[in-house]
Amino acid sequence: MKIICRCEDITEEEIVQKINEGYHTMDDLKRILRVTMGLCQGKGCRKHIAKILSRELNIPIKDIVQPTYRPPVKPIPVSATADKE
């Protein structure tokens, strides 16, 4: 059992299973498994997931479309944005 997304605790087996069920894009996997949506915002797992997709579906890694990056790029503390009254 190999953990691929540490933030959301998702294993390679789970990802491969979903690919076999027909979830064939990074966006599909993100929405069904929460991968890339954790604290690191996918920095730790995006590349690995793209590799797995490329291997399982036999498509070149450059053709794997990455989901949208949402700001903030780094997590920001609520208090850093909140004015102290």
């Binding site: 949402r70 609520v78 208090s79």
Partner: peptide, 10 residues
């Protein structure tokens, strides 16, 4: 909640 971090905004 002031101590927590916002990780995404859309």
């Amino acid at each position: 909640l002031g101590n927590t971090k916002i990780i995404r905004h859309w």
